[in-house]
Computed example of a mutant assay.
Amino acid sequence: MATPLRTREGGPAMGRSAFRRSRGEGPFRFATTGAGILLLAIMAAIAVFLIVKAVPALQANTSHFLTEKIWTPNATKPVFGIAALAFGTVISSFLALIMALPVAIGVALFISHYAPRRLAGVLGYVIDLLAAVPSVVYGLWGVIFLIPFMKGPSTFLNTYFGWIPLFAGDAVYGKSILTGSIVLAIMILPIIAAISREVFLQAPTMLEEASLALGATRWEMIRMAVLPFGRPGVISAAMLGLGRAMGETIAVALIFPATFTITFQVLSANGNSIAANIANGFGEATPIGQGALIASGLVLFVITLVVNMAARLIISRRKEYSRAAA
């Protein structure tokens, strides 16, 4: 038997493959660390740019930016605030998430654990293609088809469920927050479904087989083995979809009523969002108006950052999520 090579200190000599790996470790670690630092630097640069551009408009504003509902930054005495826009952004995005998340999880579970392999492959490709459809296509579909169609369902909800604050109101309209939320839900559904599907497919096969061997049904196996494992991924997918819904511009600009009112009545012709307001008003804005729109973009930047940080906090505080994510 050949005697292993020894170093001068008496230890085993490093093999050629291990030496090559050690040589490549340093540059790879430097590249990945640099990429992370570059990403943080870009985010900081965006934040600084938004703040610098927004400060002159905020100084010229004659009202409180965070609580004012009126938006007239192009007037001689600028008066503008983010209250109504932030409210519309949050309520429409969360309504879209509530509608899209259960459907997306169901689609992901069907593709990963119920559908035959050929059908699952076709459905997976269709979901991926839906995620790539431009937002303007969804917006045009909403304007041409969904707004006229929603007058009937909106009247039904208002008539029979008007005791719920969301569906209350003296009149209903097809162009409403509910219609915009439905379009947003359809837009974010493929993203959540695609990510959830990939997470569910990574569930340990031994856990699934052990559950079935102990007499569990298919649904019990999914509930006890697949869903706990995939929960961190589903939360991440939901937050990614929520971020897209909050930042969506063209579709909501075409569908939202573009009014500056705070109301929980999602069937009325009231509502707007930060992104839609920027898209509708930037072209005709004065320098102060552009600064006001940039300031609203800064608020949207902060809201999105807070939502993602909250999602990471939820995952890190639950030990079973952290073990599944590992």
Rank of each mutant, 00 (worst) to 15 (best):
R118F: 15
R118I: 13
R118V: 09
L119M: 11
L119D: 08
A120P: 09
V122Q: 06
V122I: 11
Y125D: 08
Y125T: 09
V126G: 13
I127A: 03
I127E: 04
D128C: 12
D128R: 13
L129P: 05
L129V: 15
L130G: 15
L130Q: 15
L130I: 12
A131S: 04
A131Y: 09
A132Q: 14
A132H: 11
V133W: 06
P134W: 04
S135P: 14
V136A: 04
V136W: 10
V137W: 07
V137Y: 08
Y138K: 02
L140Y: 13
W141M: 14
W141Q: 09
V143M: 05
I144Q: 09
F145E: 11
L146Q: 05
L146W: 03
L146I: 10
I147R: 02
I147G: 00
F149C: 09
M150E: 03
M150C: 04
M150I: 05
K151V: 09
G152L: 09
S154M: 10
S154I: 09
T155Q: 15
T155D: 14
T155V: 08
T155R: 11
T155E: 14
F156C: 14
F156W: 12
L157N: 08
L157F: 10
L157S: 11
Y160T: 15
F161T: 14
G162Q: 03
I164V: 14
P165R: 01
P165D: 03
F167Q: 03
A168V: 12
G169Y: 00
G169V: 08
A171I: 10
A171V: 09
A171W: 00
A171N: 07
Y173Q: 07
Y173W: 01
G174C: 04
K175H: 06
K175L: 11
K175N: 07
S176Y: 02
I177W: 01
I177V: 06
I177S: 00
I177C: 02
L178K: 03
L178T: 10
G180I: 01
G180T: 02
G180Y: 01
I182K: 01
I182H: 01
